[in-house]
Design a protein around this nucleic acid. Structure first.
Length: 419
RNA sequence: GGAGGCGUGGCUGAGCGGUUUAAAGCAGCAUCCUGCUAAGAUGUUGAGGGAGCAAUCCUUCCGAAGGUUCGAAUCCUUCCGCCUCCGCCA
């Protein structure tokens, strides 16, 4: 949710941001008109209520009865206005930062750097699907029989690889002060809404909804970790509050028919280690860079080539002011020519989520009044397991069809190759 | 799933239809006192919205949303959360 005062004070700036995010600037005008009406009505009702109190104190019951009717009518009008005002406000996405490149869609994303040397295989690298089939590591056929398309059984040593990756992510983040956490994967509608993920019907179709419980399955643990501290006020010295969560993620992938239909690149269910930070507003840019640097460190530890993208305004999504994606190099894709595919993403959501979740912090400057303000929230992938498995399989494949495990994982694994 | 109980400020806790603009205590902060510390004294300490150049004023908030009433923390309805006992269960 955007800051109402900011919209009032600087509508042109907001409009510019909305347009960059592919949202009509007319909504801002609509909001301002409704807001003005709302303020008028609020004043009216405040005065009527003050009157009502006075009448009530001196037991002027008849007059109070009449006054009560006036209040009721005004309240009906206020509620109407408030509802429409809220609706528009909730629909407005977060403002992008100035250093998010302006662009309509993913073609506007900017490559910041490419890191790591793409392996020279000395043979034509295979698609991971071909490799896992020979080694019997993933079974999507039986998963389709049991669960439908876009599911998979992960088997054998690949399972151990998953847990090794999780352990590496946890250890790395814990060293930086992140608190490990396993969050609930079912969350209430209001929390999903507050995180900025179900504003439109389209969004709702992307998520699994449990009708009986009026709850959602999380698409990322961010949705469950963010609301943890809703309604709370942090002390300054508790920030930054950093979590590294591990959970299964559920996505309906309703809008991606026909895309990546084979294998486990795009599935309804996968596990993910996810970082989440609550921090002071002035420090969120720095925090964002920290999250990105941890993501990059993890990729470097595994020695997987990747590139970093600065996501453009049109591709940011609602809550983010700025977003970096990491795309891992997958040498077996594209018929052995290789391609980059997204494995990580980190967003600075500034106070957009905190505002709806009502998460604040108190800074106590000595001798001065303590200030209470919204925190900033950020999230970043540590490892999205399915896609990391793919990245490791394709980058570490050997001529004989075996997979040589990254050195950093061998201590966790107890073996050095899958064959 | 069955039965009962409970949600009040940073915390503890009174209030259960009208001086509650929420008592009291604790903790916090500021100042004073003191050689230092402790103790003590005094004052102060929430959030949202609106009006005003401002001092300030009005209003909302006692788990949430509705309702009853001239008047609700207090009564009613629904929901959410927590606790106790029973049942079931990894």
């Amino acid at each position: 949710m955007l800051d109402i005062n900011l919209i009032r004070q600087n509508p042109e700036k907001i409009k510019k941001g909305m347009v960059a995010k592919n949202v009509s600037s007319k909504l801002v005008d609509d909001f301002l008109a409704l807001d003005e009406g709302w303020r008028k009505l609020t004043k009216e009702i405040d005065d009527l209520r003050a009157e009502q109190k006075k009448l009530s104190e001196v037991r002027k019951i008849e007059e109070a009865k009449k006054n009560k009717e006036k209040i009721k009518n005004a309240e009906i009008e206020l509620n109407e206005t408030e509802k429409r005002r809220e609706e528009i406000l909730r629909g407005l996405p977060n403002l992008p930062f100035d250093d998010a490149p302006v662009g309509k869609n993913e073609s506007g994303n900017v490559v910041l750097r490419e890191i790591g040397e793409k392996s020279k295989f000395g043979f034509e690298p295979k698609d991971y699907l071909e490799i896992v089939e020979k080694l019997d590591l993933i079974d999507t056929e039986r998963a389709a029989k049991v669960s439908g398309s876009r599911f998979g059984y992960i088997k054998g040593q690949l399972v151990l690889l998953e847990f090794a990756l999780v352990k590496l992510a946890l250890d790395t983040a814990v060293k930086k002060g992140f608190i490990p956490i396993i969050p609930p994967v079912i969350i209430k509608e209001e929390m999903m809404r507050a995180m900025g993920y179900i504003d439109s019907h389209k969004d709702r179709e992307e998520t699994y909804f449990l009708e009986k419980d009026n709850s959602y399955l999380v698409a990322t643990s961010e949705q469950s970790i963010g609301p943890m501290h809703s309604g709370e006020i942090f002390n300054e010295n508790e920030l930054p509050k950093r979590y590294i969560g591990f959970s299964t993620c559920f996505r309906r992938e309703a809008g991606s028919y026909g895309k990546d239909t084979k294998g486990i690149l795009r599935v309804h269910q996968f596990d993910k280690a996810e970082m989440f930070s609550f921090c002071e507003p002035e420090k969120s840019k720095e925090e964002h860079e920290l999250l990105l640097s941890i993501e990059e460190d993890l990729m470097k530890l595994l020695k997987i080539p990747y590139r970093v993208l600065n996501i453009c305004t049109g591709d940011l999504g609602g809550p983010a002011a700025k977003k970096y994606d990491i795309e891992a190099w997958l040498p077996g894709q594209n018929g052995g020519k290789g391609e980059y595919r997204e494995t990580h993403s980190t967003s600075n959501c500034t106070d957009f989520q905190a505002r709806r979740l009502n998460i604040k912090y108190r800074s106590s400057v000595r001798g001065q009044m303590s200030k209470v303000d919204f925190v900033h929230t950020l999230n970043g992938t540590a490892f999205a397991i399915g896609r990391m498995l793919i990245a490791i399989i394709e980058n570490c494949q050997q001529k004989d069809g075996s997979i040589l495990m990254p050195e950093v994982l061998r201590g966790y694994l107890g073996f050095k190759e899958i064959r």
